[in-house]
Amino acid sequence: MKTVLVTGSNGLLGQKITEKILREGGVNLIATSKGLNRYPVKDGYVYMDMDILDPIKVRNVIERYKPDSIIHTAALTNVDACEHQKEEAYQLNVTSVETLLLLAEEYNIQLVHLSTDFIFDGEHGPYDELAAPNPLSYYGQTKLKAEEILKNSKAKWAVLRTIIVYGIIKDLSRSNIVLWAKDALEKGNPINVVNDQWRMPTLAEDLADICFLAIEYDAQGVFNASGKDMMSISELVAKVADFWQLDKNLINEVSGETLNQAAKRPARTGFILDKSMTELNYQPHSFEEGLAIVDQQMKNAEGQ
């Protein structure tokens, strides 16, 4: 039975990975995050308080548990925050990868790393794994730098690039575009939504699945790991409104430029998923199927 260590286990993807392992078994999970464990179920795995920026603590945990694979989900993913907090962004998105890579090389550990569509400029999407990157934001620059460090290492590594991850965790403490839009429209609040940016939103469960497929197939190299449906952000929010039968008149379509965001966003990203589907048997849900899964989870949470 493989031992898998997950960084950032308190985040949306981290919790979905924990959920998957507890449901399916077959893996010894070492869940790590900074501070207390926020996942409601505490049995069936090991949790360690581990600051990814403390290399001594990271080494101690990895030497103690000797994982076969590390799934590195911890990162600073707020794109605008990365523009304002560049040192923190670099440490979380680049330095942490260097720390893990040293240990992965030393102990022959597979490192599965999460990356992003924001390494691209959005001029020629959707992209395959060999497309030339050109990040427009500091967030994108840090994630690309991490990829380059991995590619130049001697470790076994796999990069999973994803796009707009959505889903819910048990205490509903983490928001994302789907939950934000649903909440605002339910409250009757008008919202500004960009109509000139296109993405392929990713259900958190699908991303957790491909993390394990990467381990199961001992994957090496870059793999695209998004949802399969391309849509503009305004279309995405309209689909949320349709699914929950909310008032689409509250959606005000605007261009990205009018929002005056600190970080520049790529216009059209999206991924070609053929490699992941063929080599890893990745089978993402449609966006509507993803919304139905989220809806059922919300109903289950309310019923508990």
Rank of each mutant, 00 (worst) to 15 (best):
M1A: 11
L5K: 03
V6L: 08
V6Q: 05
T7C: 03
G11K: 03
I17S: 02
I21M: 02
R23K: 08
L29H: 02
I30H: 02
L36S: 15
P40M: 00
D43F: 04
M50N: 04
I56C: 10
V58I: 09
E63N: 11
T73P: 01
T77V: 15
E87V: 11
E87T: 15
V97Y: 05
T99W: 15
L101H: 04
L102S: 15
L103G: 08
A104R: 03
E106F: 02
E106C: 10
D117K: 01
F118C: 11
E129N: 02
P133D: 01
P135F: 02
S137Y: 04
Y139C: 05
Q141I: 09
T142C: 06
K143E: 00
A146M: 02
L150R: 11
K156G: 05
I163Q: 07
V165I: 14
I169S: 09
S175D: 09
N176Y: 07
W180C: 02
W180D: 10
K182A: 03
D183H: 14
A184D: 08
E186M: 06
G188C: 02
P190F: 00
P190W: 02
N192Q: 13
V193Y: 01
N195A: 10
D196Y: 00
W198P: 01
T202K: 05
L203I: 06
A204T: 02
E205I: 06
D206A: 00
A214S: 07
I215L: 08
Q220M: 09
G221C: 12
S226C: 07
S226P: 12
M230Y: 13
I233S: 03
E235P: 09
V237I: 14
K239A: 14
I251S: 02
S255V: 14
L259R: 14
R268Y: 10
G270Q: 14
I272A: 09
L273Q: 08
L273W: 03
K275E: 11
M277N: 12
T278Q: 14
L280W: 00
H285T: 15
I293S: 11
Q297P: 09
